[in-house]
Amino acid sequence: MMLIPCPWCGPRDEIEFHYGGQAGVAYPQDPQAVSDQDWAEFLFFRDNPRGEFAERWLHAAGCRRWFGLRRDTVTNRVLDSDDTRTVTQ
């Protein structure tokens, strides 16, 4: 049960959150213009690092806001949270 620092509500138990995977994956500006391969990248391919990971969390049982977090995927230690990175673009 990690303690996740919601930038709006403060630290809360992990069960209040919904995980959103890698942060910073932007929806293509013009999806119709990208190749099938690039579209597949957007749909299905995400970074999966062992170590520091910038990821998205939703405070689903709280303020319902998405926010970004850096976490070490080996220790599960939260490195920081930053409400300015709530958007992907």
């Binding site: 919904h18 929806y27 939703l58 806001r65 998405w66 709530t86 992907t88």
Partner: peptide, 13 residues
């Protein structure tokens, strides 16, 4: 609702 919030907040803020 969660999916709509996701797009709204993170793609089209």
């Amino acid at each position: 609702l969660q999916w709509l919030e996701d797009w709204l907040q993170t793609e089209w803020p």
